[in-house]
């Protein structure tokens, strides 16, 4: 049980660190696209670790309490929430980036913008 707790604390630490990196990235970066980089990648990764910490704890209790414990529902539903989060986050980031570019947001400090050239052709 103690090894499980140590692993859970490590996962919580990693998850919170990356969530904070994503939150501060929203303030550090200059424009929408770079903010999307920070927001999408870091919060997805951090949430994976935090939910995995929850899954580890509830699966540990499930193993102690036996097959028909309510923790089985908690474990499986947490994993489903994780899958839903991973699939929707990447697609949502794509939609937001496209909407930002079509509404006329310029990438700040950009060297090249191929998409801009296409629209001018």
């Amino acid at each position: 049980m103690t090894a499980l707790n140590v692993a859970t604390y490590v996962f919580i630490g990693i998850g919170l660190f990356f969530n904070y990196v994503g939150a501060f990235g929203l303030h550090r970066f200059p424009d929408v696209y770079t903010r999307l980089h920070a927001a999408t990648k870091c919060t997805t990764f951090g949430s994976i670790f935090l939910i995995l910490a929850v899954v580890m704890q509830s699966a540990g209790m499930w193993a102690v309490e036996g097959t028909h414990s309510p923790q089985s529902i908690m474990t499986i539903h947490s994993l489903l929430a994780l899958v839903a989060l991973m699939v929707t986050n990447a697609t949502g980031a794509h939609a937001m980036a496209r909407a930002a570019h079509r509404s006329g947001e310029k990438p700040a400090r950009a060297v090249v913008d191929d998409l801009e050239k296409k629209e001018n052709d």
Partner: peptide
């Protein structure tokens, strides 16, 4: 990304 958030070094393009 964590490295870029801390140092602020970016050089973006599309």
């Amino acid at each position: 990304v964590a490295y870029r958030v801390i140092t602020g070094r970016i050089n973006p393009a599309i």
